[in-house]
Simulated assay, not measured.
Amino acid sequence: MNHDNLKKIIDITKSLNTLYIEDNNDVRNQTLKMLNIFFENIIVATNGNEGLSLFKSKNKFESSSFDLIITDIEMPVKDGITMINQIREIDKEIPILIFSAHSNTEYFLQTIDAGIDGYILKPYSIDQISNSLSKIIEKNKLKTINNHIINLENDFLWNTEDSLLFKDEEEIKLTKSEIKLFTLFISTKGSLKTYDEIENYIFDEYSTSSKRVRNLMSRLKQKLDYELFESIYGHGYKLKYKKIL
């Protein structure tokens, strides 16, 4: 694959949340060197049971859910095919790639039945990985950087491209401070923000008091008729994302 095509793939994959499951330490470390070319956010599991647990915990919130799974087949505690079948009961769409040393027909047919999107035999190369990712992208199965809509709790939607908030397809008019508030939390995927962090980002003048931040949150709550930012007592606030059932 030429450099330009590889760059196009990386532009799409770099921000994706990827779950990688492999029990062999040496293979895992070597593979991660290649995967780090494509992905900035990789969470690792060492068996199918760990992989399933991580998937379930992340899948509760759309903001942190996985976009892609890469897994081995033969693993202790729970094998890859069993894990995939259980994941498919929860999410039938998430792309899944198999990295395996096994080329026998039985394994291959089982993975097809489980609904996988690619099967790469070890040892693999950058070209093999990029070609598999390219096929998944062509099938429009990967979330891309052009997906600008963030689903928030209580059916609120945030458009990251235009910095707009919607509810029931109606735009909610926001002040400059409110827009900056959403931008701050969305840019870091809703992680907890302290009063000081919010204060420094939104207001021109620094204050040791949290009064301005609390007043901003109070006014926004009244405007939305909903508490979209959860107050964490003594710490700050978290933005509420839509839960995935």
Rank of each mutant, 00 (worst) to 15 (best):
F203Q: 07
L6G: 03
S177G: 03
K193F: 05
F99S: 02
I69R: 00
H102I: 13
K14R: 13
N17M: 06
N5R: 14
N131W: 03
F156D: 03
S187G: 13
E89N: 14
S64W: 02
L245C: 04
M34V: 13
Y107S: 08
D67R: 06
V77I: 14
Y119W: 08
K223S: 08
Q110K: 14
S207R: 13
K92V: 14
L54D: 10
N2P: 02
I94R: 04
L157I: 11
T71K: 04
T175N: 08
S210T: 10
E161L: 15
L216Y: 14
K211T: 12
Y124I: 09
K211G: 01
K7Y: 10
N140Y: 11
I10E: 07
F99C: 07
Y233L: 09
N146L: 11
I116K: 02
N154L: 08
E171V: 13
N154A: 15
M217R: 04
I90K: 09
T183K: 15
S130D: 00
I149M: 10
K14T: 06
I120G: 06
E40R: 11
K60P: 01
S132I: 04
T105L: 12
D155P: 00
E161F: 15
T105A: 09
E62Y: 11
E62A: 05
I73V: 14
H3T: 15
R212S: 08
F156N: 01
K60Q: 14
K240P: 00
K58Q: 12
L220H: 01
K14D: 08
S103R: 08
N29A: 09
I73R: 00
I98Y: 05
L121H: 06
K211A: 13
D67T: 06
E197R: 11
D117S: 12
T46A: 09
D23Q: 07
Y233E: 11
F185W: 05
I70F: 08
I70C: 08
T13V: 09
Y237G: 01
K135A: 10
I244A: 04
I69F: 02
I12P: 00
I10N: 01
S209A: 12
Y237M: 07
L228K: 01
I73S: 04
D11V: 03
S209I: 07
L239G: 02
R214D: 15
E227G: 06
N154M: 10
L19D: 06
M217G: 01
L152V: 11
K240L: 15
G234H: 10
T208P: 03
Q128Y: 07
F229C: 10
S100L: 05
I145V: 12
Q110N: 15
Y20D: 09
E50Q: 15
E62I: 09
